[in-house]
Nucleic acid binder design. Sequence first.
DNA 1: TGCGAAGTGGAGGATTCCTCCATATCTTAG
DNA 2: CTAAGATATGGAGGAATCCTCCACTTCGCA
Lengths: 183, 183
Amino acid sequence: MRADARRKREAIIAAAVEVFRERGVEIALDEVARRANVGIATLYRHFPTREALIAGAYRHEIGRLCGGADELLAAMPADEAMKAWMRRFIGNAQGKPGLAMALKSIVKATDAEGLAATHDEVYAALQKFLDAGYRDGIFASRIEAAVLANALSGISLANDAAGREAQAAAIIDLTVNGLRYPS
Amino acid sequence: MRADARRKREAIIAAAVEVFRERGVEIALDEVARRANVGIATLYRHFPTREALIAGAYRHEIGRLCGGADELLAAMPADEAMKAWMRRFIGNAQGKPGLAMALKSIVKATDAEGLAATHDEVYAALQKFLDAGYRDGIFASRIEAAVLANALSGISLANDAAGREAQAAAIIDLTVNGLRYPS
DNA sequence: TGCGAAGTGGAGGATTCCTCCATATCTTAG
DNA sequence: CTAAGATATGGAGGAATCCTCCACTTCGCA
């Protein structure tokens, strides 16, 4: 990728994040292009669909949210750590319209665009909790990280509005609780 | 509501179900109006937003899917019955674009439009499984039907594409399994 | 430095949204 | 039965949005 193309792409992402926060994900794409000082065609070349733009915009954010797994695991048992991590994850997504959808795209797409790395980050974080839980005998139910990622994406999708923290926390509890016992 | 208005409304819903199946939920609303032999304004009066139309279109379907709880409970333990019911529910939603979003609207809206009745049906079905499970000592974790409905909506949302039955089933297992043990 | 590949912007046709209001239809009271 | 008026209807059309096309610019390698 040429240097100028990379610069434009980053400008588009920055503008998109800003515009999405201010006005929602349904905003006209022209607005994003204008803010990024970029032609609309450039935006469309980098992100052929709205979904791709949303995923691109929140890729970094999701990557950032994936961090902190080790600290949590050091501080509490695996099940509690996983719950805390998920709560933080979803709490951050609430009120950020479209972030949940971005997560869905990223979970679905193993290789498309530049989403593969983020995809792996999400899976790796979840796998850490699973491994720790199995090691310490806290989790008994064998499960793929992919399934958990899918569940996480679902919980986000269903609770993307602000003020649903308690609801989301209840589902997280239920889900992680399910891991503690054989199925 | 006047008799002719009811007729038109039903024609719109029938057309919407048909068009959504054929061409997806993103179709232009004009197309739905044309198929229903109805002016576009009439459609907009009955369903002010696309989301409302989708929810309206699938309201009956969701109601239908809510049935069968008693039969399942008669045939197997509460946890297995709940899993089977959820699998059927989500299996039916897969490949029907928008049905998951309709479920989300219905779960969210306790009173809006004519969604309240369907909302109650969903909750009632889930409550039946919960009650049976508590009665027979199968479920130990106290939880609101609302939370389960929310989870169900999330699982649908995250797995609305066809061919994700196995993935969805795994999350259902995990979730229902979580109910069997105290949290 | 020159050249080809890669990237860019924005005009503009096509599509879609959604409101407005003149007209038509239904319902009910007398 | 009929008239009145409340309710419902259709579709034109302005505004917004989408997204493609292509002439032009810029980059980076040789």
